[in-house]
């Protein structure tokens, strides 16, 4: 991981030329961070850069449109920035991207399964391990065990789009986990079980829209179909059908745009694995159109174009 002092120096250098720099600061406990919007030099003292910097800060870019903004990004986050630039949702001219190399963050969801994170007393993150003291017990875990799946299967550890790069570029992990391993496991279940699984999971949803608002590409936000009365796409009721349908709005509106950064699932306060929907769509995009979102600012998303003779689509034949 790049050194935070070097990052702070870069931020201080850029700060006079922009309205704000978006980074991370320490959050409510030792293993949680929070976004930090730096406007003056004093704010930069609070900037951190370590494995707790999980947030994809690109989610703040569309709402700061019109300002000169600098943003600090990991490899995965940079793909969201590329996608936003590609779609004209942020202005490249107004944007300064500070790229970082990153070989993985820690997952709150995985930490919660392993340790009593609500009673966290102290934590130390080493090169290949995390040591946690919680509820009086000390636990040492391999870093791999508490990294999000997206880090274990990361193909882009370095920011793909940047104006300044802080640190030395990194190699992707030697033994990359299959990015669709969890999806495969899920799809191995019988259809009825998958249907019942979602009914159960979605019944937990509280319709708070954290998934939508954390998503860097869900840019309608305040004008979301889910709350629209005209057209009246869905009811405001909080039953499973409406909550599930909302997830399908989110997923289908991201088809061919989603970079699978996992913010939706990370943000979910109820721990619903909503990333599965996007993973599935991501794999379909690769299968059908050999397209991966967020790699090229000049690419056209596959659902915004067509080929008269599609290579991979076999239409249904009737006798």
């Amino acid at each position: 991981m790049a050194d935070v002092a070097a990052l702070r120096r870069t931020v201080l250098e850029i700060l006079p030329r922009v309205d704000l720099v978006i980074g991370w600061q320490r959050g409510p406990d030792a293993l949680r961070a929070a976004p930090l919007l730096m406007r003056n030099a004093a704010d930069v003292d609070r900037l951190i850069w370590d494995r707790t910097c999980v947030h994809n800060l690109a989610t703040f870019l569309p709402r700061e449109k019109g300002k000169k903004v600098a943003i600090i990004v990991k490899g995965c986050d940079s793909r969201s920035v590329i996608q936003l630039v590609q779609e004209g949702l942020v202005d490249r001219e107004d944007l300064t991207v500070i790229g970082l190399p990153c070989d993985g963050v820690v997952s709150q969801a995985k930490l919660r399964r392993a340790a009593d994170m609500d009673r966290l007393e102290s934590a130390e993150i080493g090169a290949d391990h995390v040591e946690i003291t919680a509820a009086g017990k000390t636990l040492r875990m391999a870093l791999d065990a508490v990294m999000p799946d997206k880090c274990l299967s990361c193909a882009y550890p370095n920011a793909l789009l940047f104006d300044r790069f802080v640190g030395d570029p990194m190699e992707p992990p030697q033994q990359r986990q299959d990015p669709y391993a969890r999806l495969d496991a899920f799809e191995a279940l019988p259809l009825e079980e998958r249907f019942d699984f979602w009914k159960r999971e979605m019944s937990r949803c509280i319709r708070c829209y954290a998934c939508r608002n954390a998503c860097p590409l869900c840019v309608c936000r305040d004008y979301c179909l889910a709350e629209s009365r005209q057209p009246h796409y869905q009811s405001q009721e909080s039953d499973v059908r409406e909550k599930w349908f909302f997830q399908l709005i989110h997923a289908t509106h991201l088809a061919g745009r989603c970079t699978e950064c996992g913010e939706c699932e990370r943000a979910c306060p109820m721990g619903i694995p909503v990333l599965l929907f996007k993973k599935k769509l991501g794999r379909i995009m690769t299968e059908l159109f050999q397209y991966e979102a967020g790699l090229d600012v000049s690419a056209t998303a596959p659902l915004l174009t067509f080929q008269a003779e599609e290579e991979n689509i076999v239409e249904k034949q009737w006798l």
């Binding site: 999806l183 899920f186 799809e187 259809l191 009825e192 079980e193 998958r194 249907f195 019942d196 699984f197 979602w198 399908l248 997923a251 289908t252 088809a255 061919g256 599965l276 929907f277 599935k280 769509l281 379909i284 995009m285 299968e287 059908l288 159109f289 596959p302 659902l303 067509f306 080929q307 008269a308 599609e310 689509i313 239409e315």
Partner: peptide, 23 residues
């Protein structure tokens, strides 16, 4: 070109349904 655009979207949808547990 309406049906060309539709073909892509609908093919994606057809392949998406199984993850929902819908035949």
């Amino acid at each position: 070109s309406g049906n060309f655009m539709a073909r892509r979207r609908l093919e994606v949808l057809a392949r998406f349904l199984p993850v929902l547990g819908i035949d």
